[in-house]
Amino acid sequence: MRAYLKIAQKSFRNNLVFRAEYFAALLNTIVTILVNLAIWRAIYEEEGGLDNLQFSLIVTYVILALALFQIFTMDEYVIEKKIKSGLITSDLLKPLSFRLHLFSFHFGALLYRIVLLLIPTLLLYSLVYRVLPPFSIEMFLCFLLSVILGYFVMYSLNFIVWLSAFWFYKTFSLVTIKDTAVLVLSGAVIPLWFMPQQLVHFIKLTPFDTIFFIPISIYLGQIPMDQLLFSLLRQVIWITVLGLIGHVLWKLATRRLIVQGG
């Protein structure tokens, strides 16, 4: 346990060193939110509804969703780089669980992003726009739980994609396609309630909406009490399913590595 905490700590510190990357990420978040809010503003201005609750709701949604999207961003090429450089074999020989090692690395980066990206972004935009407070204290606690679950859904999904590096020379294409699917289908940019009904039905069959849409809907009090538990349960189910797939793939991948000798 100690070792993993150390890895997370190192990863956190490592991020602090790259200041240029930090400013790039911060500016990216701020501009993405700015552009999206400008469009929503234009839409509601047209309708003459800048003052109503609907607009505040969407503003809060967009800011929260894109800020979360930014902090859920991970270094997608860790495994690929390790395979290319051959470091993977020596990593597997270490008396540490590789998967926990990997997670600790990302966890450190996550903490860094929460402190240095999420908080400044939320502060900045709550000064400029009317950001709604959580629906209630209970809902806020549920929201926090749901965000954590959302992160694990995202992580398990990413892990599967990263593992493809054991079979493909480059994972860029797959990673990019996954990113795009998440961006569009997870409600990171547009809430599901604006999407066509058929698309929503489809999305409900996938894990995507459990990443961003469910947590933020809980924050905004958009999920009725009777469906709340079900929503959280869906997140747990997807973590289990994706986690299992990842586990099987991992076993296959390491076996492959042993057979082929890295």
Binding site: A42, L174, D179, T180, V184, I190
Partner: peptide, 25 residues
């Protein structure tokens, strides 16, 4: 193909956003 799909995301999002509104500004 991946680059195209990535860039297409912007277009799809725009269409999804605006499909309820005939015009904006």
């Amino acid at each position: 193909a991946a680059v195209m799909i990535r860039e297409m995301a912007g277009v799809i999002i725009l269409i999804l956003m605006l499909n309820r509104f005939v015009m904006i500004k």
